[in-house]
């Protein structure tokens, strides 16, 4: 556990001085105590209602919808998770304010078309002064390194291990919720939460960018200028791409979560894995293994910011995410459907 904790506390430093206090303060106590949460809604909302309105849906589908609704309320209603989303929403604002204060003057249109990840940041920074839309890309790039993976780790690592730790897993299974059914609901809730977090970053950054910086036709990294509508479409594309990347992380988290009844262990293990993969990806000697690392394709969303769009890279990235998601969902399933529940 000591290894775990150093991992957790050391990591936020990687996001840079401005960002380090935020995630450190939020994930630390939130993940460790897992205890300060209010009941989401006092009333039981008739969640079966929406599915029940059309009497056509078979009972099993409606029952599945009801369990999914319950799971989503559990995940989104938990104060710790709400706090995570709040922190995620604050980052783009902070980044925007910081960049506004330190804005480089007249650097617009500096289209240096370097495809390497580390340089994207500076390329985006140069663009920002000319167009607020770029705050979205800057925020996503920065949060993608650590904050978004932390958010996904907390929710996915907790998903099965947390239930096992509370002992609620054995009661869910004797209800009976069904092991495969429960696991699939868990994964859908992880994907929903991860997607929500990514979209919160994108939307808050977009709004903040629009308010704080000039907005107009978007000059891409390749130097081409496209219309604002086209630019916004690319923002949506980037957001979805990153959401898929986070869904793959969530699958890894789910698989780890089935191995333990200590949620914090699963969360830490996934964080170590993500950071380890990012570090390994930066070591030139490991270049051959790079494309197979789970984090390798994350920054490649910048392919969408060139004209023409580098679709080969995008598809490679998406294929990598899907392979990781499917593989680890299968591992989670194989483990969860055959393991004794001893908690």
């Amino acid at each position: 556990m000591s290894k775990t904790e150093t991992g957790m506390t050391a990591d936020p430093g990687a996001t840079g001085p401005g960002a380090s206090t935020g995630p450190g303060a939020a994930t630390g106590p939130g993940a460790a105590t897992a205890a300060t949460d209010p009941p989401p809604n006092q009333e039981i909302s008739p969640d079966g209602g929406d599915a029940g309105i059309d009497g056509q849906a078979p009972a099993s589908v409606r029952a599945y919808g009801r369990l999914l609704g319950s799971e989503l309320r559990l995940v989104f209603g938990r104060r710790r998770n709400q706090l995570l989303l709040l922190v995620v929403a604050l980052f783009p604002l902070l980044i925007g304010i910081a960049l506004k204060i330190a804005a480089p003057s007249g650097a617009a249109g500096g289209g240096n078309g370097n495809a390497n990840g580390p340089n994207n940041g500076s390329a985006f920074f140069n663009q920002l002064a000319g167009n607020g839309v770029f705050l979205t890309f800057i925020a996503l790039t920065m949060l993608l390194i650590l904050v978004l993976p932390v958010v996904v780790s907390v929710v996915s690592g907790d998903s099965v291990a947390g239930e096992a730790g509370h002992g609620t897993l054995r009661y869910l299974l004797t209800v009976p919720a069904g092991r495969t059914r429960l696991l699939s609901v868990k994964y859908l809730a992880i994907v929903a939460f991860a997607t929500t977090a990514v979209f919160i970053v994108a939307i808050v950054a977009l709004l903040a960018g629009v308010v704080m910086f000039p907005v107009g036709p978007v000059t891409l990294l390749s130097g081409t200028t496209v219309s604002l509508a086209d630019g916004l479409l690319r923002v949506l594309g980037v957001t979805l791409y990153i959401a898929v990347a986070m869904a793959a992380v969530g699958a890894i988290g789910l698989a780890i979560s089935t191995l333990t009844e200590h949620a914090i262990g699963a969360i830490a293990a996934l964080m170590i894995l993500v950071v380890g993969s990012e570090v390994a990806d930066d070591v030139p000697q490991f270049a051959a293994a790079g494309p197979y690392l789970p984090t390798h394709w994350w920054p490649m969303f910048d392919s969408l910011l060139r004209s023409p769009v580098d679709t080969t890279t995008l598809w490679h990235g998406l294929a990598s995410f899907v392979v990781y998601a499917v593989l680890f969902c299968l591992l989670a399933w194989a483990r969860f459907t055959t393991a004794d529940v001893t908690s």
Binding site: P39, N41, G69, H166, Y171
Partner: peptide, 22 residues
Amino acid sequence: GPAFYPYLSGRDNLARYDAADR
């Protein structure tokens, strides 16, 4: 022994288990 979500009320806890029942 009993096991429930500590951060939910008694009623919400029962609703959670009930929702899991096909």
